[in-house]
Lab assay of single mutants.
Amino acid sequence: EADPRLIESLSQMLSMGFSDEGGWLTRLLQTKNYDIGAALDTIQY
């Protein structure tokens, strides 16, 4: 079963217009401990 923190973070990022095609966003959020800010910083640079 998916981590509730992942579901919450992923749904927030999907609502911002990101896609999780191929699961890349799920993996990114997992490596950033479900921190949306850290994930966005990684995507920006």
Rank of each mutant, 00 (worst) to 15 (best):
Q30T: 14
G22Y: 08
A38Q: 11
L40W: 06
K32S: 15
S11D: 10
S9N: 04
A2L: 14
M13I: 07
W24L: 05
P4V: 11
G37Q: 15
A39F: 04
L28V: 06
N33M: 10
S15T: 07
L25H: 00
E1Y: 13
T26W: 01
E21L: 08
N33R: 08
E1D: 13
T26L: 04
E21C: 10
S19I: 09
Y34V: 01
N33Y: 07
Y45F: 14
L28K: 00
R5D: 05
L29K: 00
E8M: 10
D35P: 01
Y45A: 14
E8W: 12
Q44D: 11
S19D: 10
A39R: 00
Y45W: 13
I43Y: 05
G37P: 11
S9G: 07
G22E: 08
L25N: 00
G22T: 07
T31D: 15
Q30E: 14
A2D: 14
Q12T: 13
I36G: 01
I43V: 06
K32Y: 11
T26C: 04
W24K: 04
T26F: 03
L14D: 03
Y34L: 04
D20F: 02
E1V: 13
L40Q: 04
L28I: 09
T31C: 12
S11C: 10
Y34I: 01
E8Q: 09
L25E: 01
Q30L: 12
I7F: 10
G37K: 15
W24C: 07
Q12G: 05
A38N: 05
M13V: 03
L40D: 02
G37C: 09
E1N: 10
L29S: 01
W24T: 04
D41G: 09
R5F: 07
G17A: 01
L14F: 13
Q44R: 14
E1G: 13
L14S: 07
G37S: 15
T31Q: 15
G17V: 02
L40V: 07
R5L: 11
S11I: 13
L14V: 08
G17H: 02
D35I: 07
Y34M: 06
D20C: 06
L25D: 01
E21S: 09
L10F: 04
L6F: 08
A39Y: 03
G17D: 02
A39S: 08
A39L: 08
Q30S: 10
D35T: 03
T31G: 12
L10H: 02
P4L: 12
S9H: 05
T42D: 14
K32M: 15
G23E: 06
T31E: 15
D3E: 09
L6M: 09
K32V: 15
Y45Q: 14
S19A: 07
M16K: 06
L6T: 03
R5N: 08
E21Y: 09
E1H: 12
G22N: 11
K32G: 06
Q44G: 12
E8D: 12
D3A: 05
S11N: 14
F18I: 06
S19R: 11
S11L: 14
E1F: 13
L10A: 00
G22V: 01
M16A: 05
Q12V: 15
L10T: 01
E8N: 11
D3H: 08
